[in-house]
Every structure is written in structure tokens, then in C-alpha cells.
Design a protein around this nucleic acid. Structure first.
Lengths: 233, 233
DNA sequence: CGCCAGTTTGACCAAGATCAACGCAAGTGG
DNA sequence: CCACTTGCGTTGATCTTGGTCAAACTGGCG
């Protein structure tokens, strides 16, 4: 098990970045939080490019502006786990005290806002609204992680995949379909399954007419109720 | 699978609690944080007693003074998952925005400090040292949860049990042994396994002379290196 | 002493992993 | 423009880990 994952292009020079000072971030969750725009740097990453690696100094955190990012941990023997996928508006990277224990990579081409820790701490101390916002983000992450613990610890392959599809469609606010920008391998590593099992479950859902798949990365819900029922058992 | 769990004695009247105003909390991690003593209420809970339930209003968070607490989620069909065990010095219960999604129960008789949210927010705003401490606690929780994600998603039964033993002994700073105040069922529900599997793995470790068990709730390490190696694979 | 809850062990079973092959579309080079 | 490659995705056959079911054991307690 645990075959090759897409190999990263480590060409750091390809990062196109620029001060985001004057720009206005188009992302729902950023409304009214122009403060972080002032202390952040906008960066672009290409597909499969590394944003930070395990072992890096964790001197900043990030906010996704567009695209998809995966947070993962890789073991020497090839086992990988993706703790979360981040989409526009999601924050990531405030997990580390010192060294990063996880790495972050772009799943698709992505733009992120990079926020240095020092400036953030200063902002926390002088802006209670921002401080509360950040605390909220951390709580949300914690909450998400704990739901995932249940999923990994106590749910079957079918339930995991159904829950994943429903969760993604809710996060993207699309009730009738869901886009899966990541590979089957990414999904498997997120759900604690193998690629084959993910495929088989999806095929099973198609056979049972719960979903339809115009292509491998777009799923349309034919029976959302049933899917939700499976997800919540 | 998923048989009966210890049934809770819901006798709320049996809670013995008292203002902790003048008392000094004996717990390493509380050093220099007398501030929270002032806003907290000390409470005692007996074995298996509920501290809060799923669906309660999350108007406060807690800090364990002595004893062991488990944070868990129970599904209608009996499947349960224990997200974490908390020992003296650990904080818990700041996961909720509104309603609690998890419940907390005493694993052994336990004393906890109950901290109302309102007073905490005020303290956060006037005491930056305390604010930073609390942020640290949250990050620690997040970090722990993410390690557990890997454990549940990608580790074998042996690796999970070994990791659990090593982790507990590290948290209690006892290199040669570890106390397991919780039942095998609790351990299983924490590691995403069944009671039987936990037993079998422990028996296997005994047979391989990695551990010895004077009784069911005390394990002595005979070969800590090997155990750590299994845990980290 | 007998009961009860929790723990342990064994026999058997099934969900999901592994191994292997094939399909399919996009990209590459002759 | 078309063979060839390469990276995913899908499917089938087989195997293994850990779950299920059942029974025995253990220690504490009325």
C-alpha cells in the first residue's frame, strides 16, 4: 500500500508574490477583517507546490484566498495522512509552536495570504475584535479535527466517503453537486482508506444512483438525503 | 460491537463544590497562573459522573486539578469515541461555540476548576500573559488532535496501543511504568479499536516481554525502546 | 460464597488492504 | 498526426487485520 504521491516541484523561484496592501481580498470570511490584509503578503503557488514543509520554522500562518491547499504528514515508510483540505477563506498553519509537524502543499494552483507571527501577536494585543476572530478560527479547526477523529475512529468506508462528499458540498454551499479538486489518493489519505476502496465506494454510490459523475472530479447528487443518512448513520 | 459502557450516575446533587478563592492549586502547569483561580469554581466529581453532556450550553471551560476526565461522543447506535483523556493540569471544554458536541465524564473521582466564559473573556482582554497561555492551551489541543488523526487514520492496532502507552507515560513523566485509570473499553474507544483487540495486543506485548502487568491497570515497561519503536514505526 | 463487572482468550468472519491488470485521457516526440 | 508514455482511475481476485460472538477467568463486594 501507500504508493507514490505526486512529487513536488520544489522550485521556490516560481513563487510569484506581491504585497497585498492595497488589494481587496474577495473571500466571504474575510469581510470586515481588512486588518490582516495590512500585515499579510499575498503569494501564488502552482499545483503540488510546497507551501511549507515538516521541520520548517513555524513563523507565520496563512489564509487561503483562492484554490485548494492540503495539510499533511508523511511517514518514512510512505504512509501519509492529510489532516485537512483548505479552501478560500480557511486559515491554516497556526498549529506549530516551533517546528512544523505538518507540511502544506497546493492541491490546485492557489493564492494564499502569508501572515507573520510577530505582527499577528501585535495585532492580537491591540485589536480585540481581531483577537476574537482568530480565537474563533482556532476553535473551528479544533472542532473540525475532533469530528474527523470520530470519522477515522468509528466510521465505515461508505460512511467516510459519504460524509466527505456532504461536508465538501456544504463548505462550498452547493447542494446538488460537489467538485473534488484533489486526487483519489488525496481523498484516501484524508479518510484513512486506500485509493481502491475510495473508488469502489464511489462506484457503489453510482450503481445505487446516489450520485452521478460527469467526470472523475465532479460528483452530482442524485439522492442527497440518502447520502446524508449514510454519512450520519 | 460496541456494547454497554459504564452507565453514568446522573445524580447532580452529589457534586461537592466550593469556591476556590483562597486555595492554591497544586499542578505544575498552573504555576504563575493564579489569575484563573480567582475566576474559577472548584468542583468534585465521582467516578463515571457526567461533567457536561452533548447538547449542554457551552458557557464555560475547565481545568483538571486531580483525577482523570474523558471527553467523548456517543452515536445513537452505540458507537462511541473518546477524543481525549485529561489529567491534572489539562484544560478541556473550550471546543464549543454554542452547544456542546462532546460530553465530559470523570474516569476516576476528580476535582476540576470550572471557568465561566464571560469572566474568561474579560481576563483575556486585560491580561495578555493569560491570553497567551490560553492560546497555547488551544494550540496544544489542536496539535494533540492532529497527531491522533494520524494514529486513527494510518496506524495498526499494535502501533496505536504502543503509542498510547508511551504517550501516557510521557505525560505522567514516568519512564518505567504507566497507570491506566480508564477501562479497556475506554482505551478501545479512544484508539478506534475493540476491547478484545486492545486486550490481545497487550497480551502480545506481555508475551514478547515488552511490558509486565502487576494488575490490569498498571503496566511496567520491560523494553521501552522496542515499544517506542513500534509506536513510531 | 456467589454475583457482577471488567478482562482475557479462542474460533470464526468480514471489511477493507494488497496485488495485479486494464482503461483512459493528456502530453511528448518522432 | 499518430505511436508511445505517463499518471490517474477503475475493477477483480485474494489475503490479512481486526471485528464479532461466545465462553472462561478474575477480583471486589454484599
Amino acid at each position: 500500500m501507500y504508493r507514490q504521491h505526486a512529487n513536488l516541484s520544489l522550485d521556490a523561484a516560481s513563487q510569484v508574490w506581491q504585497q497585498a496592501s492595497a488589494e481587496i481580498v474577495r473571500s466571504g470570511q474575510l469581510d470586515g477583517l481588512i486588518a490582516i490584509e495590512r500585515i499579510g503578503t499575498r503569494m501564488r503557488f502552482f499545483r503540488d507546490q510546497e507551501i511549507y514543509a515538516e521541520g520548517d520554522q513555524g513563523t507565520c500562518w496563512f489564509k487561503v484566498i483562492s484554490g485548494t491547499v492540503r495539510i499533511s504528514k508523511l511517514l518514512a515508510d510512505g504512509r501519509r495522512h492529510i489532516t485537512e483540505f483548505c479552501f478560500a477563506g480557511d486559515s491554516f498553519g497556526f498549529d506549530a509552536f516551533e517546528e512544523r509537524v505538518f507540511s502544506a502543499e497546493a492541491v490546485t494552483d492557489a493564492t494564499v495570504l502569508r501572515l507573520p507571527r510577530g505582527a499577528t501577536e501585535r495585532l492580537i494585543e491591540e485589536d480585540p475584535v481581531f483577537a476574537r476572530h482568530l480565537r474563533g478560527e482556532m476553535l473551528r479547526s479544533l472542532d473540525a479535527a475532533q469530528h474527523r477523529l470520530f470519522l477515522l475512529g468509528r466510521m465505515t468506508a461508505c460512511e467516510r466517503v459519504a460524509a466527505f462528499l456532504v461536508e465538501l458540498s456544504e463548505r462550498h454551499d452547493t447542494r446538488h453537486r460537489v467538485d473534488l479538486p484533489m486526487s483519489r489518493c488525496d481523498i484516501a489519505d484524508h479518510l484513512g482508506l486506500t485509493v481502491e476502496t475510495v473508488c469502489r465506494v464511489l462506484s457503489d454510490f453510482k450503481r445505487r444512483r446516489l450520485i452521478a459523475a460527469p467526470n472523475a472530479h465532479r460528483m452530482e447528487f442524485l439522492d442527497r438525503e440518502a447520502l446524508t443518512a449514510i454519512a450520519e448513520h
